[in-house]
Design a protein around this nucleic acid. Structure first.
Lengths: 187, 187
DNA sequence: CTTTTTATTTGATTAAAATCAAATAAAAAC
DNA sequence: GTTTTTATTTGATTTTAATCAAATAAAAAG
């Protein structure tokens, strides 16, 4: 729980009482490789924190798998639309390696945000960071070439390329497998 | 102030005391056409609500103007990264028509979010909506053709096409002026 | 109302990456 | 270790939209 606490404190510190209530609401799970954390078309009830391991968040678009996110150590992840709007998610969440995670149920998170001002503030800051990241990513998709996006990934998450099949990396970068392969070869 | 209040209540209702404090912090401004609401490379101090009028939010990318957003009646808008991270904004905000707006200063908004739990909740819900919109837009840019994006705009904001030069619409849709013109002619 | 400026359309060419189709290479299963 | 399966690379072709270059059309200025 130590790393979760550290990650939370880094976003927004909590008072001792809210901190205790909040941490109590998180549940630890240890799952094997290829474990499904979220099935397609189900409401995403949990906000996750990946303590150790590797998870893939993807969906189907025209019968093809699109990797939306690759979560690694000390990252939060969730199905944003499903979690907040409480509708069925088109996302699928799957571990690529044995993983240790913490999760908190939507209802608990919202109840605690309601009961504790500082939990609400924490949530707001989490959503704000996510929004800023989303804007950076949109800019990257709209204006950078496939090559530039690959180089950006090499800079920001070099460990991913070693641990994840290229087909997942490709759709995460918004290119085909073939294009990514060509980018990698011309070096 | 009536429409601002209505828009706020629609997102998240406030208690009577916080509502009064919060509304008091918003300042009304009436500006002519071609008025600059935010200069390039300045810190964006204000969160805006467009009561009536039309504003364009754009920036320069490789010496070209890119329209990031076109704000119309009853919409909130801000430079997300600059407002929250307090750094200089690459965005420029400019009215395209005489406009009536409300604005609230960053420091007031944050102070009130700190003092009133329900203002913090309102802010969190605003940011969440913005995040969901950002994701929808990213999906649109990544997977829809220029044609589909134009049709989406026709569906969601038909009034914009009448009121805004095509060159602004084009970069807002992420295409060149020429491509947009061709899309429009083949109907 | 004529000139000047700005906005929009049309045409030809190019570029980036997708698609279709195999060919290797690597990993897993036997 | 050999076979089978899966992952990656390479090649040829096509598609979408950008770029470059004028030509109209519309709006603003005189």
């Amino acid at each position: 729980m130590e790393k979760l606490l550290k990650a939370l404190e880094h976003i927004s510190p909590l008072g001792s009482k809210s901190q205790q209530c909040f941490l109590d609401a998180w549940q630890y799970i240890s799952v094997p490789k290829d474990f499904t954390l979220l099935r397609e078309n189900t409401v995403s009830d949990y906000f996750f924190f990946l303590d150790k391991g590797l998870a893939r968040i993807y969906y189907y678009k025209n019968e093809k798998e699109i990797t939306e996110w690759l979560a690694t150590d000390q990252q939060f992840f969730l199905s944003i639309t499903s979690f907040f709007e409480r509708g069925p998610s088109h996302l699928i969440m799957h571990t690529l390696q044995p993983s240790q995670l913490y999760k908190i149920h939507h209802d608990d998170f919202m109840r605690l945000a309601d009961e504790h001002h500082d939990v609400e503030r924490l949530l707001r800051k989490m959503v704000t960071s996510s929004l800023i990241l989303s804007q950076v990513r949109m800019d990257s998709i709209q204006f950078e070439t496939a090559q530039q996006r690959y180089e950006r990934l090499l800079r920001t998450s070099p460990q991913l390329i070693q641990r994840v099949p290229l087909s997942y990396i490709a759709s995460f970068l918004g290119v085909t497998l073939e294009t990514l392969s060509r980018i990698r070869s011309q070096k």
